[in-house]
Amino acid sequence: MKLNVKIMPKNGVLDPQGKAIENSLSQLGFKNFSEIRQGKIIEIDIDADKDQAINITDEMCKKLLVNLIIEDYEIIFDREE
């Protein structure tokens, strides 16, 4: 079961990388955009059915992949079965 964990900085937490990207895009002449934030995607292949995979990934997120003080996460499946 292939899935992705999408990790994003929590709303309200300073995201200096997003700000830097925003500034650079402005300098390149891009207009009419805002609120750029940078996160990360982690790909995982788990040998389990969907429900189990969600439980296992959830545990992985809480134990290592995500710092819940500053990040939110979402488990996304490659394709809906």
């Binding site: 937490v13 300073l14 200096p16 990388q17 700000k19 830097a20 710092n67 003080i69 500053i70």
Partner: peptide
């Protein structure tokens, strides 16, 4: 990160 101290440390705001 190990939970022994509260809070966390993020990227310097000066980048």
């Amino acid at each position: 990160e190990s939970g022994l101290l509260p809070g966390t440390l993020i990227k310097n705001d000066c980048l």
